[in-house]
Amino acid sequence: MSFDSDPRAVGPRIRMMMPMLTPLEAKVVETVFALSDFSEETALKDLADLAGVSEAMVVKIAKKLGFAGYRAFRKGVVRYNRLPTAEMHREVSPQDTSRDIVEKVFRTSMQALEETLAILDYEAFDRAADLLVRAKHRDFYGLGGSAQIARDAAHKFLRIGVRASVCDDTHMMMMSAALLDPRDAVVAFSHSGNSTSVIEAAQLARRNGARVIAITNYGTSALAKSADIVLCSTAQGSPLMGENAAARIAQLNILDALFVVVAQRDYASAERNLDRTMSAVTSKRKDKT
C-alpha cells in the first residue's frame, strides 16, 4: 500500500484498518488525530508518552497500518491534515444553529465523496462493470439502509434495460444465492461489511459459481474477503450522524458511475431502452404533453 500518490487516501486507508487494530492500538491512532499540533516535529517518544505506550508499540501500529515506520506514518498524517477536505468534517454540537448543522452535514458528505474518489480501485471498478454487462442474472443483496441503495441502483439499471433483482430479506437472499450459477452476478451491500446475512448469501452464491461484487466501507471486512471484487466507500464517523449517512452518498455515487459505464458498453441499446422506459411512465406524469 502506497500513501505517496494521493494524500487524500491516508485518512480513509487508516479508517479502513481500524477494525483490525486492538482497542489499545486504536486508542493510539485516535490520540494522533486528536492532536491539533501533530507535525513533522512530533517525536516518537513524545507521542508514545502521550498515548501511554512504548515507542516500539507506536512503530508496530504504523507498520500494521501499512506504513514503513513511524516517520512515514507521521508524514502521511501531517499531509492529510493539511488538506482542505480534512477541515470539512466537524462534529455537531448542542450550540449549533440550523445553518451550522446544514453546513456540517453537507461538508461531511463532500469529504466522503472526495476521499472515496481518492481510494477508488479503477481496475476493480472496470471488472465490476464488465461483470454486470455480461451477467445473465444480477441479484442485489442488502439489509436496512443498504437495501435502499440496492433498490436505487436496480431502478437506474432497469431504465437502460439491465435487469436486477433486489433481495432485502435473509431468506430471499439465501434462496436467490442457491439458484445462481457461473453466468450470474451478485452485488452485496453492507456498510460495515459484517452483516452475517449478506455475507452468508454472498458465500453461498460464490460456492455456486456466481461472481460477487462487494460495496462496503471496509476493505478488510468479512464481506470484502468473501467477494471477487471490492469497491470501497469511506466516511468519517460522528456520534450523532454516524458513518452511514455520508457513506451512503459515496456508495450511491459509485453505483451512479457504474450505471453510466455499463450504459456506455452498449450505448445504442441503453439509449433505446431509456427512451422506451421513459415513454412507459410518461402517462403517469401530470406535466405530460
Rank of each mutant, 00 (worst) to 15 (best):
D4L: 07
D4M: 04
P7Q: 08
V10D: 01
P12C: 08
I14G: 15
M20R: 05
L21A: 00
T22H: 01
K27C: 10
V28H: 05
V32Q: 06
L35H: 06
S36W: 12
D37E: 05
D37Y: 07
T42K: 02
A43P: 14
D49F: 10
L50Q: 06
V53Q: 04
E55P: 01
M57H: 09
V58H: 03
K60V: 10
I61S: 00
K64V: 03
L65Y: 00
L65H: 08
L65V: 00
Y70F: 04
R71M: 07
A72G: 12
A72Y: 13
F73A: 10
G76N: 11
R82K: 03
T85E: 03
I101G: 03
V105D: 03
T108I: 14
S109A: 15
M110D: 04
L113P: 09
E114V: 14
E114I: 12
E115A: 02
L117K: 07
L120N: 01
A124V: 01
R127E: 06
A129C: 12
L131P: 05
L131I: 10
V133E: 15
H137M: 10
D139P: 05
F140Y: 02
Y141F: 05
Q148M: 13
A150H: 13
R151Q: 07
A153N: 07
A153H: 03
A153S: 09
A153T: 10
A153F: 11
H155K: 13
K156D: 07
A164S: 05
S165A: 14
D169R: 13
H171Q: 06
M172N: 02
M172Y: 12
M173A: 05
M175L: 12
P182Y: 12
R183M: 14
D184Q: 00
A185T: 12
A188L: 00
A188T: 01
A188D: 11
G193P: 00
N194G: 04
A201Q: 13
Q203Y: 14
L204A: 09
R207W: 02
A210H: 04
A214Y: 02
I215D: 06
T216R: 00
Y218A: 02
G219T: 08
A222E: 09
A227E: 01
I229G: 06
L231M: 07
A235G: 03
A235L: 14
G237I: 11
G237K: 09
P239G: 06
L240W: 04
L240E: 11
G242H: 04
G242D: 01
E243W: 11
A247M: 08
A250L: 02
N253S: 05
A257F: 08
L258D: 14
V260Y: 08
V260F: 10
Q264P: 10
Q264T: 13
R265K: 02
D266W: 03
A268W: 12
S269Q: 09
S269L: 11
L274N: 13
D275S: 08
A280H: 13
A280V: 04
T282N: 02
R285V: 15
K286P: 11
K288V: 15
T289I: 11
